[in-house]
Design a protein around this nucleic acid. Structure first.
Lengths: 187, 187, 187, 187
DNA sequence: AATGAATGAGATTTCATTCAT
DNA sequence: AATGAATGAAATCTCATTCAT
């Protein structure tokens, strides 16, 4: 009862890895079960179907990322160092859970329609930060600045992940920080 | 040779629309044929297989986008107005061919491994522009600045496309231009 | 032995209801366990397998129906009133256990081959009654008259159960009695 | 174009036979395809899914039966001989297409909820006949008499089909006719 | 040039049943 | 006595592709 079900985790690990490496649609239930060392039917004890597995995985990890953003962007201190903290924590997160990071950042628009609307997304966290820095800013500007910063970060990460730029991501932290500061007009 | 095959275009239109709206993997040959008003077998007269259709579509449209970028970013005039010209032309392109625009910008990583390496991608065009502005810049910086600018543009466009920001994209042109100028340290 | 197993009844109730409402084949072990509030494995403590559950349920209820028929059709008194007693008791039975009634009357031929041959079926009870009324009647006639009476009753009940005729069944008792008397040439 | 598709019929024949002999739920797509000598996928070119096949088969044959009833029960002549004509035609129909006959008469309530409501069912045809004979009869009586006659016929047929009574059905025609006349109070 | 029909391989999902705890 | 977890087998259905016409 009290003990956490033991078999969910290996399945989640396997699914996450395969979704990111091969793509969500290219990954079959069979692949996941094989990699997790269980039968295909075992999956259906824990999730209703493949979509359920996908969305619950995504929701879980996006929540982790948003939690990081909300925490770091609301620390005390000047905006610039809060932003640095956030970017730095994201790099740490990548080093700890590269697959989760990539799922959240890169795979997003594959599953747009699958996701329930009530999940708090990174855009909201960054938008709140932008608004905090300058409460006079018009709504559209909030959206655009937040989107631009996120897009810049995602695309830079992609360049590293796909090997066009040498890693690890942390190596480029200060450059990315500088770019994001310019986008958000900090300093 | 004598006459251009007439039936390619409707198929391309249908495939493009469906790929963008439903996702590439979620779109079947049957769906495309149905929407194009031809038989499934007809597709195989024009393309070898589904992958061939996907890559040739993508290649065609990415070339259009890169051509725009290369042309506009190399016009005479100050960098800022060249960048504005490029962004403005992209907005026009979107208004003309929204599905093509979205295929190029958004669907990219669905088909990562499918893409032939020799195609010139937007990153290269923007990278050349960055280099041109400041030939002293280190290689990594080129990559990162280009990536950040592209990411900012993509993500802003996404916000409009997915309805989180009111359209058309051109409405936000000057803001996006300002953000990109800051990223590329222009002015 | 010492105490009657307490958990059989809820399972039987749930299974009976689902078998009748959804059909035997469309009802899974999981559905039954869910509706009975026990685990799927619990079922196998009480019955060998699904077929065993089905047949034992059916056997139990068909026995109840045949017992009613045998009792009422062999009361003292004229055939017409014995028949009325039987029909009336069946209506009471329906009001008491509608699902059991429907399982016996309607679901029969879903499970034809599953049923053990030695179970006494309604046809036998009614056949005996027909023979009793007129011992000169040829065998085929017994079968046909009994079948016709049973079919008439079943089909009339169905019309009520499926909502084409307003209920309860008892409301139509005298009409059905009259029809059955004509079939069996009573009076 | 003009030619009727050739491959539907063998599939329909195989499905009909198996549905009746083994039961609808016990018959798989694989069984049908195997018996029809085609691949499983071929089925899905002609019907959307298994339910579609089932209902379209049933609808087709129930229409044949109702057509027979409507025709014979509305011939000129006295009710008794019209009824005899109908029963006799049903027996002929059975001899011609025993599986279709059995699907219509016996399998009905397996698929109750699957059937579209607008299909004219045997009950309606017989009900019209009952009403024609005695236009004064109250509505409930129509339903009950029609149901009783149909039930009697079905159940008698079952006794033959399941081997409790020697066949063919036509052998018992005059007896069944007499019973139905009594039910409907003809003569 | 075009198509309706067909198909093999494989996808996801369900099922009755078993077993360790 | 009871259960949560697991499973092999099979079910239905989809897909990209081929082929005779």
């Amino acid at each position: 009862m009290a003990r956490p079900p033991r078999s969910r985790q290996p399945i989640k690990d396997a699914a996450l890895k395969l979704f990111v490496e091969r793509g969500i649609h290219a990954t079959g239930i069979r692949d996941i079960a094989g990699a997790a060392g269980c039968s295909e039917a075992a999956l259906y004890r824990h999730w209703d179907n493949k979509d359920d597995l996908i969305t619950s995985l995504f929701r879980e990890h996006v929540t982790e990322v948003v939690t990081i953003l909300d925490r770091e962007l609301n620390e005390p201190g000047p905006p610039s160092s809060r932003l640095l903290g956030a970017l730095s924590s994201l790099c740490d997160y990548y080093d700890r859970s590269p697959y989760a990071f990539r799922l959240v950042l890169l795979v997003q628009h594959d599953l747009g329609p699958l996701l329930p609307a009530e999940v708090r997304m990174p855009h909201a966290a960054v938008g709140d930060f932008v608004f905090q820095i300058d409460p006079q800013i018009p709504t559209d500007q909030i959206q655009l600045q937040a989107a631009a910063a996120i897009g810049a970060f995602i695309e830079c990460s992609s360049r590293v992940i796909y090997g066009h730029l040498s890693g690890p991501i942390g190596k480029h932290l200060s450059t990315v920080h500088r770019l994001c500061c310019r986008i958000l007009d900090i300093r």
